[in-house]
């Protein structure tokens, strides 16, 4: 995909002023998001929590697809693994929920890395097929009898079954919903910062080089196999942490929450936000959380069709997603200012 405008491999970093338009936008966004729970109702806060969680998952998918050029129709599976890791650790082992996040991330990294190994030999459509199969098989994998004592089989696992809510640490004066939201927000900001640094690092440049031209990357000495599996692992790590956060926020995991539909939703978010543009994850997540309600209001039962038509429209009219539109808009404004 032509995403080189956003993150061109090997672009020289010019010294920037400390205050840039981009930083101001991010700061305003952050302040707004922190302030949000103190001005709105509980259910809305819960929805924005979900939005942030989806954004993290989409961020992970974007690392794989946007930065490394590999496809996945099965990221819902990594999300599920993260969610179950947290649920099992909190419920069965009594571990503090905050400590489960790195574990969930690590397990998903390993899981993704291992799944990425066969994926090495698979190009484009075959990789899509393997991940498609993973997504479809995932609910049944979670029900398999040997792990039933952990996963709870069809019933799933209720998280925080004794306390009902994640405890707010240090006696902070927040209700659990607000705290879950803030916790998710801080984790999300940290992961976004991490993703940006990965993309700007040697590793990120190697991944983009592979995306743009695998043969040239190989001949320049990039270890293609290593970086492709690494991208899969990192991508799964992000998405897995999102899953873990969802277990904390929703307080319940069950196999049928992690069907193929979840993977579709993540892909929709990625495409709508803009493949290869990391902040697009937030826009994509906003779309997938709020548009279904809206679509349901237009026509009950046809929200799937609405999603589908919208996706087709995006591919036809704005194949770079919201990120592409934004760039085009900013470019136009800049030209307008310059021509004055």
């Amino acid at each position: 995909m032509a995403t080189s405008e956003t993150y061109a491999a090997g672009a020289a970093a010019a010294p920037k002023p400390f205050i840039t338009a981009e930083r101001v936008v991010y700061l305003l966004l952050f302040v707004g998001l922190v302030a949000l729970p103190f001005f709105s109702k509980g259910f809305f806060v819960f929805q924005v929590t979900k939005l942030l969680i989806y954004a993290i998952a989409i961020l992970g998918l974007n690392l794989l697809t946007g930065i490394n050029g590999q496809f996945s129709l099965g990221h819902g599976a990594f999300y599920a693994v993260g969610a179950y890791t947290t649920a099992i650790m909190v419920e069965m082992m009594g571990v503090n929920y905050m400590l489960t996040l790195p574990v969930a991330g690590l397990i998903c990294f390993v899981f993704g890395f291992l799944f990425g190994l066969p994926a090495l030999r698979l190009d484009g459509i075959y990789l899509a097929l393997a991940t498609f199969a993973l997504a479809i098989a995932m609910p049944q994998l979670l029900k398999l009898s040997p792990i039933e004592h952990l996963t709870g089989g069809v019933q799933g696992v209720i998280v925080f079954s004794e306390t009902f809510d994640p405890d707010v640490p240090f006696g902070l004066p927040f209700d659990p919903g607000t705290w879950t939201y803030l916790f998710t927000l801080f984790v999300g900001v940290f992961l976004f910062w991490l993703a940006r640094n990965i993309v700007a690092s040697r590793t990120g440049r190697a991944m983009m080089a592979i995306r743009d031209n695998p043969i040239a990357a190989r001949s320049m000495g990039v270890n293609v196999a290593l970086y492709k599996t690494l991208a899969f692992g990192l991508s799964a790590l992000f998405t897995g942490i999102a899953g873990a956060l969802s277990a904390i926020a929703v307080k319940f995991v069950a196999p049928d929450s992690f069907t193929f539909a979840l993977s579709i939703v993540l892909l929709v978010g990625l495409v709508v936000g803009g493949v290869g543009w990391l902040p697009g994850a937030l826009i994509g997540a906003t779309f997938i959380v709020f548009v279904p309600n809206f679509a349901e209001e237009i026509s009950k039962g046809l929200s799937g069709a609405f999603f589908g038509f919208f996706l087709i429209l995006v591919i036809y009219l704005a194949p770079q997603g919201a990120g592409g539109l934004l760039r085009a808009g900013v470019g136009r404004v800049k030209r307008l200012l310059a021509s004055r």
């Binding site: 995909m1 697809t65 496809f71 129709l73 484009g124 459509i125 899509a128 579709i264 892909l267 929709v268 495409v271 493949v275 039962g301 046809l302 929200s303 799937g304 069709a305 609405f306 999603f307 589908g308 038509f309 996706l311 087709i312 995006v314 591919i315 036809y316 194949p319």
Partner: peptide, 27 residues
């Protein structure tokens, strides 16, 4: 219209069709 578009575009359209047909049948 998207004959020459990249693979991802095709996959996305397949998924879009999936959603459209599934939801239309339910409807």
């Amino acid at each position: 219209p998207i004959e020459n578009a990249p693979v991802l575009s095709h996959i996305v359209i397949f998924i879009a069709l999936f959603a459209i047909f599934n939801s239309a049948m339910g409807f």
